[in-house]
């Protein structure tokens, strides 16, 4: 593809919220002059996504993920900046654009509660004006991929949460969108169902070449689906690059797990920070730079049965990223970070 499918340039969304102090007097005062405060939900982010990419959008609650997603889906006007998706400016809500993208929200339903799933599908067919032949084919395909066969003719209220989510996703894809915005698509589901939905998104992306932008609290989703992640925090882009690079950059530590012969083990805090210690197994957190040296000392000093060196789990890395105070979390562009963070 010549130009990226999603282009975001210096996008900003600033909300003005009324502020009120407690007390009757303050309430009366606010009638005359409302004090407002600017919430910078999204504060100037820039990125591109190429056709067929699956990009994970990470950030803690309130980081600006959903606001960004809503701007790209045409639901919110930005305060400043620009964005193009498939060449359209989303918030102009061009019918052609709406026909080519979809938004899935894990916590919200569009299916009609009291009637069978397939009838809600019919409704979307009418709204999107899908030709009968294409509709039949898409439904067949989705039913096969998501194993919807037995669910189609049940009323939505009789479905489990996971079954409902599968049907929600299918309903959102009937018009074969080229761009998918998935906001927490697996939230609240059990592990098996999460895995199935993940598998489906990957498969859909492979088959149709659709571009996917996904937010999730479950790192497993991100690890399984996204080679690339974009991290935002306090409305600012913190990192944009490969998932491995994120770990590499943000975690200056390695985890060394040693299994020792002589239990109870001696105090190992001289070698590094003890993260876990049970039976004969001890896990140490060690600065990356001195990992080889510490490993050597451990092997020399102790009777080691087994030793492994690992990157910390992705959740922990992310947690560390978000633990940074606001002023130090400044990004400088693609995959680049300010040195003091490292």
């Amino acid at each position: 593809m010549a130009s990226p499918v999603i282009q975001v340039h210096d996008l900003r969304k600033i909300y003005m919220v009324g502020e009120r102090e407690a007390g009757v007097l303050a309430a009366v005062r606010s009638l005359v002059r409302r004090r407002t405060r600017a919430i910078r939900a999204v504060d100037g982010i820039t990125f591109h996504v190429d056709a067929g990419e699956i990009v994970g959008f990470l950030g803690p609650n309130g980081a600006g993920k959903t606001t960004t997603l809503k701007m790209l889906a045409g639901l919110l006007h930005p305060t400043e900046g620009d964005a193009r998706v498939l060449g359209f400016r989303p918030w102009e809500r061009d019918r052609e654009y709406l026909r080519r993208m979809t938004l899935v929200m894990g916590q919200r339903n569009q299916l009609i509660w009291d009637i069978p799933v397939v009838d809600s599908f019919e409704l979307n067919r009418a709204i999107y004006n899908i030709p009968p032949e294409a509709y039949r084919q898409t439904v067949e395909e989705l039913v096969a991929l998501l194993e919807l066969g037995p669910l189609l003719h049940k009323p939505v209220r009789n479905l489990s949460l996971g079954e409902r989510m599968k049907c929600e996703i299918a309903a959102s894809l009937l018009h074969r969108p080229r761009v998918l915005f998935l906001d927490e698509p697996t939230i609240g589901l059990d592990v098996t169902m999460q895995r199935r939905i993940r598998g489906f998104v990957a498969e859909y992306n492979r088959r149709t070449g659709a571009t996917v932008l996904l937010t999730s609290h479950y790192m497993a989703d991100v690890e399984a689906l996204c080679r690339r992640v974009i991290v935002i925090h306090h409305g600012v882009l913190l990192f944009d690059g490969a998932l491995e690079a994120l770990v590499e950059r943000f975690s200056p530590f390695k985890l060394i797990t040693v299994e020792l012969a002589d239990l109870p083990a001696r105090d190992l805090s001289a070698y590094g920070q003890v993260v876990r210690q049970d039976e004969g197994t001890v896990t140490l957190r060690v600065p990356k730079a001195i990992t080889p040296e510490v490993t050597g000392r451990l092997l020399a000093d102790l009777e080691v049965l087994d030793l492994t060196v690992q990157d910390p789990p992705i959740e922990e890395v992310i947690e560390q990223v978000f633990a940074q105070p606001e002023e130090t979390t400044l990004a400088t562009g693609n995959g680049e970070l300010r040195p003091e963070l490292l």
Binding site: A73, G74, L75, R95, E96, M105, R108, Q110, I127, N129
Partner: peptide, 13 residues
């Protein structure tokens, strides 16, 4: 109230 109006607004109609 539930935020599901978003679904309506993303429809091409």
């Amino acid at each position: 109230r539930k935020g599901t109006l978003d679904f309506t607004l993303t429809k091409p109609a």
